[in-house]
Amino acid sequence: MVKQFYQAGQLIFLEGERARGIWFVVSGLVRIVKQSSTGRIQTLCALNRGRCFGTCPLFSSEINPATAEALEPTTLAVLPQTAFKEVSRQRPALALILLSVYGQRLAQLAHLSEALGTWSTADRINNCLLTYADYGAANPVVRLTHEELARLSGTVREVVTRHLAQLEKSAIVQAQPRLIEILNLGVLQSTWLCKAATP
């Protein structure tokens, strides 16, 4: 395995590029994104310490189906494809670990497809707040910018800003630069669960 360091905002690999292997996040935060021809970005998932990515091309082709970018200073360890295949032949249980990663990712993508296809934008933003909140503090906090929240929830920054202003007015969240504090978790959860979704 080879260790590599990336600055915040630095690209790790691009969609369509030949894959190098399987990547493990040693520290930091990575996001996997799809980009449209007009430059808009949809985040597929965000991965922190202990998670791995770049696994998709190992079996069905050698091309990365999405782009990976470091969101903050990040250390990665990369295991080349050939080495991985060799190790997995010797240790079949390793395949179950990889399958577990695939299973999680597939469930995440099925969920995201449902969200993009059937949920309202407000529901998608609320779901992102609940998904990416750090629940360690007295009040859960989300350390994302409006732009990042927009990319995660498949909308644009202006819509996120408007929605957060409404939540702030109802004292459900308090928004500060790069930090959104959830003041009333119960209401946010019930808002997301009970609202009738519109496309």
């Binding site: 091309p57 069905s60 189906p65 993508l109």
Partner: peptide, 30 residues
């Protein structure tokens, strides 16, 4: 767990489905 050839074929099937879902997300988003 027991048959390496089947293991590779099944992993291939799952990653193919994963890529198909990635494409669906792309279509729905853009």
């Amino acid at each position: 767990l027991a048959v390496p050839e089947f293991q590779e074929v099944f992993l291939n099937l799952v990653t193919t489905r994963l890529k198909q879902f990635v494409t669906l997300v792309h279509d729905l988003a853009f």
